[in-house]
Simulated scan of single mutants.
Amino acid sequence: MAMDVTGNGAGDVLAQLLAEAVRIVAFTGAGISTESGIPDFRSPGGIWSRMAPITYQEFVGSEAARLEDWRRRFVMNAEFARAEPNAGHRALALLLAEGRDLNVVTQNIDGLHQRSGVPPARLVELHGNATYGRCLECGARRELEDVRAEIDATGRAPRCPACGGLVKAAVISFGEAMPQAAMERAVRLAESADLLIVLGSSLVVHPAAMIPVVARESGADLVIVNRDPTPLDGVATLVLREAIGPVFLRLFPQLGEK
C-alpha cells in the first residue's frame, strides 16, 4: 500500500528515500514543464484539444502537412525559449552536481532538462527533442534557424543538404516508431535503480509508462509526485499529490535563492 502524504511529512519521507538510494532514476512528464509555463498537450484545454496532431504518415505524405508541422514547431519552440527551468528541473541538476548516481528519463521534448544542467550522458529522451531537426533518411541534425531560413527562402519544407531526405523536428510523432535505443537504455536504468521518482507524468502514455513498472518489479522504491491520480499509485512506495517545485524547494531551500 502506498504512503499518500503531503507537506512536511512527505518531504521527510522523500528525503530519507533519496538519502538511502544509490542509483536514482527521475521519470519526468509534462507536469514538470507546465510549472515553467509550457502548455500541456493531452489535458482538457491542452494543445491537442485545440488542434489535431499531425501524424508521421501525414508528414511524410503531404507537403502541406510538413509546412503546417513546421509552422507549429516554430510557435512551440518560441514558448520553449521563453520558459525557464523550474525548481524541479534544477533539483535534479543539483543532485547530479553533488555527485549522485542519477539519470533522467523524460517524456518531454522541450530541452529544459539540458538547460537546467543535466548533461546528455545522464538524459534519456523517450519522445525526442523539438528544439532541433533531424533528417529522416540519414539522421543528420539541422538547427531550427537554418530550417526556418530555408522555408522562408523556398516556400517548401526543408530537405537534408547531405542526402536530400525529409527533415522533421527530432520528436516522435504519432504513428512513428519509438526510438529503440532510448527505450532499451531506459529499461536498463529502471532495472538497476534503487529509487525511481515520477515527476509530473500521468503514466498513461505507453510504452513509456512501463518504465516505472519495470523499476518497481525490479525492487526499486517508487515515488510519484503528480497532482492527479495515476494508475500506479496503488503500488508506489510514496505518493505526493502536489506541485513538483514546492516539494523540492522544501528539500533544497537553496533552489529558491537568487
Rank of each mutant, 00 (worst) to 15 (best):
M1W: 11
D4R: 07
V5E: 05
G7Y: 05
N8R: 03
N8K: 09
A10W: 08
L17F: 14
R23G: 02
V25S: 04
F27D: 05
G29T: 04
G31F: 04
I32R: 08
I32V: 05
T34H: 09
S36D: 03
S36F: 08
G37I: 02
P44Y: 07
A52Y: 05
A52T: 03
E58P: 07
F59G: 05
V60E: 08
W70D: 02
R72N: 12
R72Y: 13
N77K: 09
A78F: 12
A81C: 04
A81P: 03
R82K: 12
E84N: 09
P85Q: 13
A87K: 05
R90K: 15
R90H: 13
A91I: 01
L92K: 04
A93K: 07
A93D: 04
L95Q: 01
A97Q: 12
E98A: 08
G111E: 01
L112H: 11
L112C: 06
S116N: 09
V118R: 01
A121D: 08
A121T: 03
A121P: 01
R122W: 05
E125Q: 14
H127G: 11
G128P: 07
G128V: 02
N129K: 14
A130Q: 00
Y132I: 00
C135P: 06
E143Y: 15
L144V: 00
R148W: 13
A149Y: 13
A149G: 12
T154R: 15
R156W: 08
C163P: 15
A170V: 01
I172A: 10
S173N: 00
E176C: 15
Q180W: 06
E184L: 15
A186I: 06
L189W: 09
D194R: 11
V198A: 10
V205L: 12
P212D: 10
A215Y: 03
S218F: 12
S218Y: 13
V225E: 09
R227T: 08
D228A: 10
T230K: 12
D233C: 07
D233N: 13
G234L: 11
G234W: 10
A236T: 03
E242H: 15
F248V: 03
Q254E: 14
G256H: 13
G256M: 06
